[in-house]
Design a protein around this nucleic acid. Structure first.
Length: 404
RNA sequence: GAGAGCGUAGCUCAGCUGGCAGAGCAGUGGACUGUGGAUCCACGGGUCGCGGGUUCGACUCCCGUCGCUCUCCCCA
């Protein structure tokens, strides 16, 4: 075991893994450009209170998953466990609402949660977060889900998009009460875990995997039946839009999110291969106000980049590599050739190791070169180089005069 | 926070009821000084995760510890 190791749950990203990661990131950024979202770069550290207020004091994220520490003046700071809270803080602090009728932003970067690492779970992981501030229109929810759908389709991953409405200040309390009442009436049939969570996180009981719980919960009240008129309209309008856009989705009346700030629409994209959530989001109409901003409805979602990358099977091939292979006393000439090719915009590697032509061709293979630019005494003397296609074996003589 | 599995060469892993630490792949050199992927030969490489115990003797058995992986809770 190496003497120095990265901290548990903190990983180096490189090689093939990074290529997938970048492919996902680039594709999403291109989508966001088309949808006219503007980037905002947010700090990785906020006052801990920003998260406590937004995510909710009682949630697992705040209670046991935050990296918190004190600065020299004793104030509590935290590494961000998610992006929305900071985005809202920035929206309020910079008064972004004063600039435009509504605001569409995205951010990309690391998030931190103190959890036990396992498949698709890291203590430092990366998200792209997308937020729309200032519209209550369900068309925004629909467009965000459309965006999610397009991202996932173009990446070619097998997922299902689930949606639900969890109501608002008006209707959610009565539902929660009804649900807890119901759960108490069947508590004898619940597993140990669910018995505990029926008060703490009652909605979670609804998608417990234990068969007896599943059975006990069949007759449980559903949020959709308790929605107030406004929430009901919002939800049905959303579904109309999704149908109009031909976006396949599955209604999951038991879909909940682990953060307190959500209202009305919540949605998730779940991998059908690995049973992990890769994108999740929803509406949070009270959060801006909660962080001392003007009452402003908002919706957003976050993409887990590692999770999405690990579902990718194939990534597009890289552009061809030209390997400049000098042998003999021709390094000056080779430098000139490499420079000229690079100025044409080609991807060029100049061999840094000596060896005969055979050796150079071996190096070229190991580096995955598509073309080898053969430069020997003949080439230098004759004012040309030999271009070899490593796939077909064909060779071409290319005239060249060094102009360094 | 609870549970399970695994730590032997750069990688993947053998190594039996304790008896000289191995293979394949990768690497380097050569066969082969202007033509690669193939083949053959040679070579380099290890605190068997770490610490303790049992034993004449521990990679092997026992205890502890650290690390990794996975599951639950929860989540991107």
């Amino acid at each position: 075991m190496p003497e120095f190791q990265s901290v548990r749950g903190f990983h180096d990203l490189y090689g093939e893994e990074l290529k997938k990661f970048k492919h996902v990131s680039n594709l999403i950024r291109e989508k966001l450009r088309v949808y006219n979202f503007e980037e905002i770069i947010l700090p990785v550290v906020e006052y801990a209170e920003v998260f406590q207020r937004s995510i909710g004091e009682a949630t697992d994220i705040v209670q046991k998953e935050m990296f918190t520490f004190q600065d020299r003046k004793g104030r509590w700071l935290a590494l961000r466990p998610e992006g929305t809270a900071g985005a809202v803080r920035a929206y309020v602090q910079n008064k972004l609402y004063a600039l435009k009728p509504y605001v569409k932003v995205f951010y990309e970067g690391p998030m931190f949660r103190y959890e036990r690492p396992q498949a698709g779970r890291y203590r430092q992981f990366h998200q792209i977060g997308v937020e729309v501030f200032g519209s209550l229109d369900p068309v925004v929810d629909a467009e965000l889900i459309q965006l999610v759908y397009e991202i996932l389709s173009e990446l070619g991953v097998n997922v299902v998009i689930e949606i639900n409405s969890i109501g608002c200040k008006v209707c959610r309390p009565s539902y929660r009460e009804a649900l807890v009442n119901y759960l108490e009436s069947v508590e004898g049939h619940l597993c140990e875990v669910c018995y505990d969570r029926k008060d703490r996180n009652p909605l979670r009981v609804l998608d417990c995997k234990v068969p007896t719980c599943k059975e006990a919960v069949k007759e449980a009240p559903k949020m959709v039946d308790y929605l107030c008129q406004e929430c009901k309209d919002h939800y049905s309008k959303l579904k109309d839009y999704l149908s109009l856009l031909s976006i396949p989705y599955r209604e999951n009346p038991y879909l909940v999110r682990g953060l307190d700030y959500y209202t009305k629409t919540v949605f998730e994209a779940v991998s059908t291969d690995l049973d992990i959530t890769v994108i999740a989001g929803g509406r949070y109409d009270y959060l801006v106000e909660e962080l001392e901003g003007p009452p402003t409805p908002a919706v957003g979602f976050a993409v887990g980049l590692e999770r999405l990358s690990m579902l990718l099977k194939e990534i597009p091939p890289e552009e061809p590599l030209y390997f400049v292979a000098p042998f003999g006393d021709v390094m000056d000439y080779s430098l000139a050739v490499a420079k000229a090719l690079r100025l044409e915009g080609r991807r060029v590697e100049l061999s840094y190791r000596k060896g005969g032509l055979r050796k150079q061709l071996e190096f070229a293979n190991k580096l995955g070169a598509r073309y080898v630019v053969i430069v020997g005494d003949e080439e230098k003397a004759g004012g040309f180089y030999t271009l070899k296609d490593m796939e077909t074996g064909e060779q071409f003589r290319i005239e060249f005069s060094p102009a360094m």
